[in-house]
Every structure is written in C-alpha cells, then in structure tokens.
Design a protein around this nucleic acid. Structure first.
Lengths: 128, 128
DNA sequence: GTAAACCTTGAAGTTTACTCTAAGTCAATG
DNA sequence: CATTGACTTAGAGTAAACTTCAAGGTTTAC
C-alpha cells in the first residue's frame, strides 16, 4: 500500500492531479485507511501506468476514463479494449506523421532564414 | 486582396479564428475596405503561412505573437528570429522523440493485450 | 429598393486539464 | 498532549484557444 505522496513520486503526478483523476473516474475506488487517507495498491499503480501511457500519447481524460471503466469490467471487455488501443495507436501514428511534415516545414524555414540572415549581414558588414 | 472568406479557404482557419488572431496581435494591421471589411494582402497570406507553421508545431499563440511582432520590425530582427526558429525546431524534435517513446509503449500494450485476448478466447472457446 | 447573404464589434461562454483555497481531520514526535 | 505537517473535502479559479451571441452595418442580386 502506498500513500498519495509515494504515488506522486512513482508516477510524477501531483497529489492534486491524483485526486482530480479519482474524481473524474479515471481511477475511482482507491482504498482508504481508517482515518480516510488514500492507500494505493500495486494494481492501482499498474492502472496509473496505463493512464499515463494513454495520456502521454494524447488521449483525452474522458476517453481514458471510458477505457478504465472497461478495464474494471474485467476480461470480457478484453476484445473491446484491444480494439480501442489499436485505434489509438493508429491515431498516434497519423499524428506523428503529420508532425513530421510540419517539422520539415520548420526546418525549411530555418534554412531560409539562415540564408536571408547571411545575405543581410553581407550587405551590412561595411556600415559598421 | 482577399476577403476573410477567401482566406478561410486558403488557410483552413475559420473567420472567427482569423478575427481572434487579429485581436491577439498575431496579424494586426489588416487593411479594410471603405465599408470596414477586411482585405488580406499576399503578404498577409504569407504571414498566415508562418503562423500556421508555428501553430502546427505546437508554439503557443503568445509566442507566435512575439515572433510576428519581430517580423514586423523588419530585417534587423532577422538574427533573433533565426535563433528563435532554431530553438523552436529543437523543441519540436525533442517532443517528437518523446512521442516516439510513448508510442512504443502503446505498441507494446497492444501486443500484450492481443496475447491476453488470444489466451482468453482459447480458454472460453468450449463454453460457447 | 429591398431582401438575402455576408461582414462588423465587444463581450460572454466553452472546453480541457488542471490548480488553488479554506477549513477542517489525522498521524507522528518530543 | 500539543504541535507540526500531511491529508481530507467541496468548490472556486486559471490558462489556452477558441466559439458563440446579439445587434447592427454593407454588398449584391433581382
């Protein structure tokens, strides 16, 4: 069992964010101590690993929440989750390809500006 | 000279967004007709090209606004703009590498889920 | 010359993902 | 057993990037 602070260290999320995720049903049903403090289990940590993985690849919290709800339903949703995950992977792939194209444009602009700058400095080297 | 609607078609931005960008100083000083309608020049379109390029690679509107302000100051800001652009390109590169790693994790999960699903269906094939 | 389509403005509203606040409860230490 | 510091809650606030609204002015086509 881990306190919210330990989970912060392990996941890189803040306590605020963990509580927020709980409220938003990404990871509800976290155990509590007698005094009402959160106690995260190893499964909770594993679930948080999945949550971060999906979040880091740009899935909205709303969709992550849906995915985690399916997870809590157990193995009979394995097929559906597998399909969702594949679809997500494809989305990410497409986004990365687009990004690659956009990046090429930036690179082109950097070269263009570098040339323009060189020319500008050639023309103004005598006025200094 | 192009109407706001023509610029929408060329850039893929909505009229709302174009007006918003004007208000936010990304591209202020757009010419107006006698009746007060916006008339975009070819330079405006070129500037919008740069704006979209920066936006597509994840630069904030605030930073784009700063970049465009430098652009309006003319050639004496070429060096600064060139540096900014290079820094931006590096940022994008780093972000893409991170994304690649996150994507690999998703791919791993897809495979893991595919295997788990296969096993689940093997175990439940006789109960149907 | 009037109706329909299009443009104008400022301001308020929306969404996402937090982030902070206040007022209080709980646990550990001297 | 009191203090310190971490934890609790509901709810308000924030930031970015739009998006919508209402009320009105402009163009164009018949």
């Amino acid at each position: 069992m881990y306190s919210i602070h330990e989970v912060c260290e392990r996941t890189g999320l803040t306590a605020h964010t963990l509580r927020y995720y709980e409220k938003e049903k990404l990871l509800p049903n976290v155990n509590r101590s007698a005094g009402g403090f959160r106690q995260y289990s190893d499964e909770d940590l594993e679930a948080l690993g999945m949550i971060c993985c999906l979040k880091n690849t740009g899935m909205s919290l709303q969709n992550i929440s849906r995915f985690m709800a399916l997870t809590r339903e157990g193995d009979q949703t394995l097929r559906e989750r597998c399909e969702l995950l594949k679809k997500h992977r494809d989305t990410v792939l497409v986004r990365m390809e687009e990004m690659q194209k956009h990046l090429e444009k930036v690179t082109w602009k950097v070269n263009y500006f570098t040339e323009r700058l060189a020319e500008y400095e050639r023309n103004n080297s005598d006025t200094r």
